[in-house]
Nucleic acid binder design. Structure first.
Lengths: 224, 224
DNA sequence: GAGTCAACGATTTTCGAAAATCTTCCAGAG
DNA sequence: CTCTGGAAGATTTTCGAAAATCGTTGACTC
């Protein structure tokens, strides 16, 4: 959704990555308050770039701002998970349908390549089977992005990307809760096959079901 | 989508309002570069709150950021209008369908009240018929927000609000281009009647057509 | 004992200048 | 004449401290 930072263009970009990583990995917990003093120590910089990073994270739903009370990590809840799932089913389902309809041979190649990269490595870490592998998560995001990449709507793509990254923390929970109970590899393969077979309706339905299962695996594990 | 600022909670909030207003009113043009020196003079404050305001505006699509080259006003284009229209038809159409399905008597009252307030004043200014009245635009936004307010999905509401405000600049153009050619009052009334009659499909279709007409009125007027 | 209010401590928010970066422009070589 | 190199100027980005604000504590009144 924004300019890609190779890792050192601006300090604000670095701070964004660092804080985002701290939130995703769980080293700062949902609902926890984020003090500027701590974040400055963590990122090794002054307050200004940290402030800009938090502004971006807030726009993406990772943090929340209370005037004069500062920022804190957004909470996780069952109701937000349901809401997020429904929104993703609507937006990404439609984007996939459009993409299947409009995609050319380049798009097919992108989908196949992304799927191959993702299928090549296991989802969970070998040392901690309840934890997700960072590189798998990256390739997983790339696969879903590739699927909808031919939809022709930058705005829809931006919405989908935001929703996808916002669902990231729930996805991690899902892996640790339902380790081995599902077969995500099969679901992804089926998704790809339907898309390449130009079955837009079927692919959309499979995607919605795919997301529905992830959400269902977390029902009962989250309160409220 | 964020905490409401009564007008003086933080300077950053004031800067956000001021710059947003400058962009919407057209006193800074699409594509134009926004220098911090100018904005500081405009807002009467230091660089820090201006920077935060621009971060928020960028998240909402009003401005764009190039690393080390600063911010500039987002351009208008025919392709973005089409994209925006399609996204709004998808998201707001679904939100309206859900709202009609779930809305209670309070929701009905909110819709009727919001429509009454909007219908009570003319859309265009009396002195400059090609310019939109600020208070009408406010009530127009409130009416559309009321229609979908019972959809039960905070995330979908946030997306719709962002898309609606992002379409604001196109809407102003539409008024100046097609002054008198359409009858938006009738469209709004029909929309309300279908919603109150609990015709979710019909209301959704009417909304999509409503947006389609606004977009069509601008075809040929925008290049690219 | 309950309630009010002022002062304190912690934290955010803002400032004004310094540092870093990009763009432009001009001189000099090929 | 065109292209490369580099210094000057303009602008963004970052810093460290000052100002403003919020929550709390504790004394004081009723």
């Amino acid at each position: 959704m924004e300019a890609k930072r190779a890792g050192g263009r601006t300090l604000a970009g670095d701070a964004y990555e660092a804080i985002r990583q701290a939130i995703r990995s769980g080293s700062v917990k949902p609902g926890e308050r984020l003090r500027f003093a701590d974040l400055q120590a963590l990122c090794g910089m002054s307050v200004t770039p940290v402030r800009e990073a938090l502004a971006r994270l807030t726009a993406e739903g990772f943090t929340v701002l209370d005037d004069h009370r500062g920022y804190s990590v957004a909470s996780l809840s069952l109701s937000e998970l349901r809401d997020l799932t429904a929104a993703r089913q609507l937006c990404e389902g439609e984007a996939l349908r459009l993409s299947v309809e409009k995609g050319d041979a380049d798009w097919e190649a992108r989908v196949i390549a992304a799927h191959h990269l993702m299928a090549r490595i296991p989802q969970a870490r070998e040392d901690i089977p309840s934890a997700i592998r960072e590189d798998w998560e990256e390739r997983h995001a790339a696969f879903h992005a590739a699927l909808i990449s031919a939809c022709g709507s930058p705005i829809l793509l931006e919405i989908c990307e935001k929703l996808f990254s916002r669902a990231d923390r729930y996805r991690r929970l899902s892996v640790s809760v339902s380790a081995g109970a599902r077969d995500p590899a099969a679901e992804h393969r089926r998704l790809m096959e339907l898309a390449l077979a130009r079955d837009g309706q079927g692919a959309g339905a499979a995607l919605r079901e795919h997301y529905g299962r992830t959400a269902a695996a977390l029902e009962g594990f989250l309160k409220e």
